Simulated assay, not measured.
Amino acid sequence: MPYPENKDFHALLKKVDTCFTNGLPFSIYRKPLENEVKGIFQSDDTLNTVADFEGTGFVFAPFNLDDNAVVIKPGDICSTLYSMEEKREQPEKFPPDQDKAVHLKLVEKGIAAIEKGTLKKVVLSRKIEVKLSRSPAETFQNLLDSYRNTFCYLFFHPKVGVWCGATPETLVRIQNQKLSTMSLAATLPYKHGLKPKWGSKEIEEQEMVSSYINERLSGSMEELHMGNAQSVKAGNLWHLKSEIKGKLFSTAKIRDIIAALHPTPAVCGIPMEESKDFIQSNENYQRTYYTGFLGELNMGDSNETHLFVNLRCVEFAGEKAAIFVGGGITAASNPESEWTETQNKSMTMLDMI
């Protein structure tokens, strides 16, 4: 039985069901550490795209921005509070051991490119297809109950598809010329009662990302402050994160900030263009919206833009779903260890769907 205090939330899910039935675009979402679930509903099925990021709505952008970012125009905006419900008993799902040889070969190619000096770091990923046992709405609620410190969302457009996720990474937040973002990199599995022990590979990877973001943003910032790296837990994983804050020049444009940050070194690599070319030439699938970004664009009275990197996500397709997992490859990477990291990451979403 649903919690009585979530009555309005379940009414929101009924509105979502109606949109699925009628083919009308929407996004429902909750920001990290908040209790409010918001919904943006479009009144028709037009596929609206944006290049200058001057419009208003919920933006859903691909890894390759040449493919255009989609915007759901707010015909109707709803919000309701959500109280975390008791977690349902669910068997632990272990990742299939599929395509291991293919991924090991991909990682080896990445390391070889780094050793040649073509790249400093590259993020390489793979796609895992599984049979669904839960609906998109059930998956979304599972994420709300399991990952309070992430951005949880459910997105639908009949001309794009159905996506859901719980991402721990902010791309950028801009409000009244104040900017905040983060440098997030490195991964270790969470073990109850134990703090993570970071090795030189993880520390170097995180420092590389921080330096790169500082360099990319410096031309748009009047002030820029980089915080110290901290261990942060997201689900069953640890990451290293540095908070980055500052004040934009009055002439800075959102599209320029997005172009400077996306795709981040945490999902693409360094240098960005060379890493992106390597990914698109060597990964065995097209990422589409995985490692793109999503969130509020010029919303509310303060015209706030709050965007998140599309990680820990699932794409629904009929009775099947696809999840995506990857890792940052550096000169110190070991292919077997990188495979294990993707296996650990995959359990985050496998348990939800």
Rank of each mutant, 00 (worst) to 15 (best):
H10K: 05
E283M: 11
L261S: 07
L240F: 05
W198N: 11
Q98R: 09
R287L: 10
G326Q: 04
K276Q: 13
P32L: 12
K121D: 03
H239D: 08
L124C: 03
I279Q: 08
E5N: 12
Q230S: 12
R134G: 01
I28A: 10
P263Q: 09
E92F: 15
C19I: 03
K245C: 09
D45M: 10
E338D: 11
E319C: 02
K93V: 13
Q98M: 02
L261A: 07
V309H: 05
A186T: 01
V16F: 03
F293W: 08
M347V: 10
T340L: 14
E202N: 04
S146W: 04
Y285M: 06
G23W: 04
D99Y: 09
V50A: 11
Q230V: 14
V314F: 07
S79V: 00
E89G: 07
L154K: 09
G327L: 03
A332Q: 15
E341M: 11
N149P: 02
C78M: 14
R216I: 00
F249S: 04
A113Q: 12
S200T: 11
K116S: 15
A137D: 00
N284G: 12
E338W: 09
L119I: 10
N236G: 13
K320Y: 13
L224R: 05
D17N: 14
E222Y: 02
N176W: 01
G55N: 11
S146R: 15
Q343G: 07
P265V: 10
M84R: 15
E204K: 13
K120A: 08
F41Y: 11
P32I: 08
E205S: 08
V232C: 12
D67H: 12
D97V: 06
N68F: 09
I128D: 02
P335A: 11
P91N: 10
N228I: 03
L184P: 03
D17P: 01
Q280L: 15
A322E: 08
P4Y: 07
N68V: 01
P158V: 10
L237V: 07
L311V: 05
P263W: 10
N236S: 15
K121E: 06
A234E: 06
Q175A: 10
F155M: 06
A69T: 06
E85S: 13
K14H: 11
L81W: 05
D52G: 04
K73W: 05
T139W: 04
A332D: 13
C164I: 11
F140Q: 07
P2N: 13
E86W: 03
K345L: 02
A185L: 08
L217Q: 01
A112H: 10
A11M: 03
K73Q: 14
S333M: 05
P74G: 13
L154P: 00
G227C: 11
K127R: 15
E296P: 09
I254S: 06
G39T: 09
L47F: 09
L65I: 14
P74C: 12
K38A: 07
S281I: 00
V172G: 12
N334I: 11
K121F: 02
Y153K: 07
F324S: 05
V71A: 02
A185W: 08
N176L: 06
Q280E: 12
N282E: 14
N214A: 13
T348N: 05
K121S: 04
